[in-house]
Design a protein around this nucleic acid. Sequence first.
DNA 1: TTTTCCATGTAACTCGTTACATGATTTC
DNA 2: GAAATCATGTAACGAGTTACATGGAAAA
Lengths: 185, 185
Amino acid sequence: MEMERELLLLGLLRQADMHGYQLMEFIERDLSTCTDLKKATAYALLEKMAGLGWIGEQEVREGKRPPRRVYSITPEGEAQFQHLLRANLSAYEPAKFGEDIGLAFADVLPPAEARALLDQRRARLVDELAAARAVPEHSGTFQFVVQHRLAHLECELHWLDQVRARFAANGGRLASSAAPHSITN
Amino acid sequence: MEMERELLLLGLLRQADMHGYQLMEFIERDLSTCTDLKKATAYALLEKMAGLGWIGEQEVREGKRPPRRVYSITPEGEAQFQHLLRANLSAYEPAKFGEDIGLAFADVLPPAEARALLDQRRARLVDELAAARAVPEHSGTFQFVVQHRLAHLECELHWLDQVRARFAANGGRLASSAAPHSITN
DNA sequence: TTTTCCATGTAACTCGTTACATGATTTC
DNA sequence: GAAATCATGTAACGAGTTACATGGAAAA
C-alpha cells in the first residue's frame, strides 16, 4: 500500500504546495473512503520523500507559531509520480473479503439467527450507501473514487440480499440449492 | 484481520482435528481468494490459541519423523468460535480500493494512454474472473465465498468498462458528463 | 479560562511477511 | 543421488497504528 500513499501525496502536492496538516485535512475529509492514511504515517512519508529528493521542504513561520513545513514537488518527484501513476492504473489487486469467512461457517447457526445477524450487516451496509450518496460532486476524475464506491456498495447490497434470502426466516431451514444432506440443526 | 483468522482456524478445527500443515494446505488450495494467511502466521496463531486454551495440542509421531502437532478444539474454543462467528456475520467492513487513487489523477495523462493502461487493468481483472469461474463447487455455505467473489468481479468489470469509456480512444479528450470547464489537455 | 484547533513529531507496539533453518521422507 | 515434499519453527524486518508530547492561537 505504500506506493498508493506516495502517489496520493505526490499527486496532491503536484496541484499545490502544502504542509502536512493541510494534506491530511484534505485526505480525511474527501478521501477517507479510499485510503486510511493517518497523520503519523503521512509525516513520516513526507520526511522520507524529502530525503529522497522527490519533494522539497521549506520552513514557513508566521509570528511565534511552530513553523510549518511546506512541501513542493521536485522534477524527480514528478518523474516518480508519473511512474507510480502508470503502475497504479495498469495494476489490479483483487480485494479480499474477510467477512466471507464467517459466511462459510454460517450453517452452524440456526438459519433464523444467521438471518438476524446478516440483517445487522445489511443495516451497516445501507448506512455506508447513504453516506456515499450524500458525498457532494467532485471535480474531474476525482469523482471516479465516489462513483466506484457507490457502484461497489450497490453491488454488495444486492449480493447480501441474495444471501439473506438463503436463510429464509420461514420454516427455519436452508432453502433449496444445497443438496439435502445431514443439515438438521 | 486477526479475528477472521482465528475464526477460520477454529472453524476448520471444529470440523476435524488437524495439524498446522494440513490446515494451511486446505486454506491455500480452497480459500486463497478470501484470505492470505501465511504459514508462519498460522503456526504462531495456533501456538497462541493453544496457550489461551482454545485448542488442545497433541504430539503425534510416526516413526522417526519430526512429530506433528495435532490440534483439536476445546469447549472454550467452541465458545470463542461462536462468539467470533456472530461478530463476523453482523459486521460490515467497507472495502478500500487503493487503485482508485491513480484514477483520481488519471486526467494528467493523455486520454489514449490512460485508456491503454486501463486496458491492462482490465486484462488482469478478466484473468481473475476466469479463475473465479473455474473454481469447482463447494459444499454448503462454503460456496458463498466463491459466489461473492464472482459477483464482485463481475461488478468490477462492468464499472471498469464504464470508466474506460470515459477515456475514449477517438478524439483524445474526456467525454461529456463532466461540465465543460478548463479541461484542455 | 478552559477547551478546541493548528501543527509537528516521537516511541512503543502490533500485526504480518520474508527468508531461512532443520531434518526426515518420498519421488524422479 | 538429487530434488521435491512433509512439517515445524525462528529471526529479522517492514509498514502502519496508537498514544502521547509539545506549544502557540483562536474560540467558547
